[in-house]
Every structure is written in C-alpha cells, then in structure tokens.
Design a protein around this nucleic acid. Sequence first.
DNA 1: AAGCCTCCTTAACCTATGTTAATTCCTTAT
DNA 2: ATAAGGAATTAACATAGGTTAAGGAGGCTT
Lengths: 197, 197
Amino acid sequence: MDRMQLQNSFQAYFNELGYDIDWQRLTVPMDIHVIRKGDYLFQQGDFANRLFFLHSGLVRYVSVSDEGKEFTQTFAKSPRIIGSTKAMVTEARVLFGIQALEDCMVSSYPWRAFYEQMRQDIGFLECYAKFLERIFITKEERENAFVKHSAERRYLDFCADYPELKNVIPQQQIASYIGITPVALSRIRQKLKWHRD
Amino acid sequence: MDRMQLQNSFQAYFNELGYDIDWQRLTVPMDIHVIRKGDYLFQQGDFANRLFFLHSGLVRYVSVSDEGKEFTQTFAKSPRIIGSTKAMVTEARVLFGIQALEDCMVSSYPWRAFYEQMRQDIGFLECYAKFLERIFITKEERENAFVKHSAERRYLDFCADYPELKNVIPQQQIASYIGITPVALSRIRQKLKWHRD
DNA sequence: AAGCCTCCTTAACCTATGTTAATTCCTTAT
DNA sequence: ATAAGGAATTAACATAGGTTAAGGAGGCTT
C-alpha cells in the first residue's frame, strides 16, 4: 500500500468536509500501522504527538478512570483523522487509548512537521479547522446529551446515530459510551422490549 | 469606543493564544453591543450567524431542556470570542442563549464575511484553529468530568477552576453548570463543610 | 421598620443507577 | 460433544441525586 492508495481515503474524508485538496503535496514522512482487532494504536498515558489517519477499519477511544472503570469516549470509523488533539496541541500525555474494533490500516505523521506544512498551505489549514469544528460540535452534542437526557434517551440516540454499530459491538462498550454500567443498559433494553410488544 | 480601543482586547486574547496579529487588517463591518447584567446577547432558538467578541464583562451560555430546566454550558469572561460555533458553521438555530452576568461590551461580525477574510490571511485562520483547539479541549475535559467524576468532585473542580466566580455567581448557576439541582449542590456543600470541621 | 423577593438550606420521600452475585447464553477450543 | 470463558440477563440491595415543600437569611423598596 503506497501513498497513492492512501490518498484516496484522505480525499474521501476531505471531500465530505467540502474540500478537494491534493494530498500528494503533503510530504512529511509517514508511517504505516496495521492494527489487529482488539489491539491498541496507543495506550492511555503515552505521549502521542503524532497525527493518525484511519484509512480502513473501526476504533474506539477508551479511557480508564482512577477507579479502574472503562469508558468509551468515541467510536470512529474510517476514513477519518484520529488521535488526541489535546495531546498533540499541549504535548501532554493522552487521556485515552485507541483500540481497534476491527483490523485497521492507519498512517501517521509527526504532528509538528505536519502542522508546519499546513501553515504553508491555507487549504490544509482550512481542512484542519473544519475537522476541529466538527469534533467540537460532536463533543458539544455529547455534553448536551449527558446533562439533558436520561440514559434511556442516550441509548436510543446511540441506536439512531450508529445503526450499523448497534448489533456489532459488545453492549458493555455501548454502555460505557452512554455513561452507564452494562447492568443498567440491560435493564433499559428489557424495558424497551416490553414496551415494543 | 472605536476600533482602535477594541483592538486591544483582541490583541490580549490572541497574544494569550500565542499570536500577535494586526487586527486593524480586519475590515469586515462591525457592530457594538452593550449588554446589561441579566440581559441576553441572543436567545436559544435564534439564528446567530455572527461571530461575537466579548471585550469586557462575564457571560454564561444557558440552554433550556424540553422539560424547561435550565443548564449552564459555559462561563466565559473577557477577552474572548463567544457565540455558537455550531450555529455559525451549520447555519442552524442556536441551542443556547448568552446571558450577561455583568454589564458587557461586545463587538460582532457577520460570520461569512469574517470567514472569507480569514481565508485571505493565514494568520487569522491559524488563530481560529487555535481557538477551536481550545474550546474542543475544554469540552473534552467536561465530557470526562461528567462520565468519570461524582457531582461532589465536579463541584470541587469548579471551585478550583473558577476561584474568582465561586463567590460571585448564584449557586443555582453553579449547580446547573455541574449538572445537578441547587438542592443537591446544597447537600454537597453541607457535607463538605462538615468534613472541614 | 415592614414587606417582599430571591436565594439558600433542610427534610421527607421517590427514582434511576450502581453493586454484587447467581444464572443463562454463546462462542470457541479441545 | 463437551468443557471453558466471556457476554448478557436478572434479582436484591445500596446510594446519589431528583422532587416537593417548608422555613430562614439577606437585600431592596416603600
């Protein structure tokens, strides 16, 4: 798999954001990572000052609390930029790990070099801004959901937002995404089933 | 108050973000708003396709749920860009109102024109990206807090994060910011007071 | 000073979710 | 086919936070 092939998924992603950019102009050195289902791209607590691009596959961002409880921040499917914006920007340790839920193909770029190159090219920078706008809006919607909606509503929203994931990923992970325990999710599902009959 | 004076608060804000930009190059038409304590810059449900800059004062973002419960998304103090990124970017209605907690001085710019001008000048665009990075990180930390921490911990974090607000704004608003009722916050405060003795 | 308003506290009760543990179901390996 | 391990369900109990309502403590206004 070479740069040319990878470029297609970049193109697909940024077209969706409304941009048509020649990614061959991006000359920073690139690594390729193949991650097997269940394995981690990086772990919580690592320094991850690289930008990753998910070319194929599905991942989740997993964060573990002080008490050892797992919590899924995000499900991300290709094509998409992945990684920790915070860790890149502030050079802090990452607060979550990225785990492959399917076999994945990922390319990565040193953040500093990538950023410097973006500054030379307003088109790249605009794409980066679009990306930031998008992930911000997603987080804002999530904040809204946690404060305004019940767990039941959050589950129904999850099913509506990710119909293709609903029956693929384990319920524990869905529960940890909507912020409840697997037991509580099971109760909610049972209640919903009852109402459906 | 003219453009020159306003520029100082822009400068202060973007210096803090690590940029030194000549905001006099920003020529899009500007409005000035003076908002009295308690009044709203805009209301939830409005179209707010303008970018606002808070030159002086303190505001909160207030969102009301379907059941009529108030929820404070953000406290923002000058100097700072304020407004709804989502409403600007997606041309949707705003999901929160902005209420002045002190008398405020705000300037505003039509978003489209502002954005077009940013695209002519990579320095502006970089500032915008920095701004987006920052608000994203804030939201991510908030998501973390809601899922991993108890209300008590969120209250203590609030006190640490906003020591200057803690004794200034009504507790109802603090409660609505950490996602609980005023009654629950009062309970928590009492428990903390007990432990302190 | 009296009255009024808003905020905060406290109490009693209710509900959703957490916790623990036992049971069943499904998948995979032998 | 059977055994073993992980995932989901269910039940019983514990707890944090919501709801309602009543009382008290400042601030304003008159």
